[in-house]
Simulated assay, not measured.
Amino acid sequence: MDVLDELERRITAALQLNPRASWRTVAQVLNENERTIARRGSELLAGGRIAAVGIRSRAASLLVRTQCAPGSTPVTTEALAARADTSFAYMVTGSTDVVAEIVTSRDRLAHLVSIELATTPGIAHAETLPILKYFRTIRSWRIGALTRDEADQLIGSRPPQADGTLTEPNLSAQDQDIVDCLISNARMSYEEISRRAGVSETTARRRVEWLLRSDSVHLRLLVEPAAVGLPVEALVWLRIAPDKIDRIGESLRRDERVRYAAALAGSSQIVVDVTLATSSELYEFVTQSEWASGVDSFDLTMVMRARKRGGRLNDTALA
């Protein structure tokens, strides 16, 4: 995979903080020529090396850990990734073959678990682990290419979107159309949103701002960790006494190496997605982090292929 150069990383880092930032704003913050930023940023987006997407808020999420019939892991990965309600789908090492996150509504959980997953091609066994709380999602993951002052300029006075909420707002049909626009392209112009949603540009701007403030849709900038020098990715499944879950979860939330951490109902109490530069750093993460002494035991699965991230199919991951 091509690794982003320094300017590409800085553009990516800027859009992580503010996916809808104009090229003019990014150029001013990075102290670069606006035409250069617009050209290089547009090339990153058009080439699929980065993607700005939205994720719809839902009241229920669960992780699915599947064991597949011999030779069927790619089929199962494709089937889970193709679901519209799947946030991510990974092929992994160990006793589990595929891990996916499904974001849905509470009234669909029973049918999802008993029928849909049971009839998914290739699955021999599936463990479902409802998510109780997010400590960190990829909205909070940063590649660290900006100074504190640059980051503050991009965030400005916008209130940060919370990571831990599991809600499903009651939206009008018009707002649903606008959310659909942001899901397909978080950087879609207000002019295009107004055309697709059948509203004025002023209304489109006002409703987008409300949808973001109310956490009805979450925006994020997707980039493959390997493209920013972090080719080692692992899922760490922690088993923890109940009275330690919050403390360890908060420690993980503060750890810049963590892409994602969530409290679960099931055989593991917390799952962590971590991306690092080397296997030695992964060893250090699981043995020397401040939370390590509070964990009863853990499993470690390496991510071999990410077929889907942030609701977006990742074609290059299976190349």
Rank of each mutant, 00 (worst) to 15 (best):
V29K: 14
E150F: 08
T36W: 02
W210V: 13
I240M: 04
L7T: 14
S140E: 15
S297G: 05
V64F: 00
R142A: 09
L171C: 02
V3C: 09
L17C: 03
A100P: 04
E209G: 03
L318P: 04
S172W: 00
V272E: 03
V26F: 14
G310P: 10
D273R: 13
M1R: 12
R309Y: 11
R247G: 01
N18Y: 13
G229R: 05
E127S: 09
N18S: 09
D246I: 08
G310Q: 10
S57D: 05
R10T: 07
R49I: 01
I50R: 02
L80S: 02
I138P: 07
R106G: 00
I248A: 11
E233S: 14
A13P: 09
I102L: 15
R239P: 00
R312A: 12
V217F: 01
D97V: 00
P74C: 00
L264I: 05
E78Q: 12
I240L: 12
R309M: 09
G310M: 07
T93D: 02
P19K: 06
P130S: 06
I50Q: 02
I55P: 01
S184N: 14
L44K: 03
R253N: 01
T96S: 07
S279F: 03
E281L: 10
E224R: 10
A46M: 03
R206K: 12
S279C: 01
A82Q: 05
I50L: 02
V232R: 12
R108W: 11
I131K: 11
L212F: 03
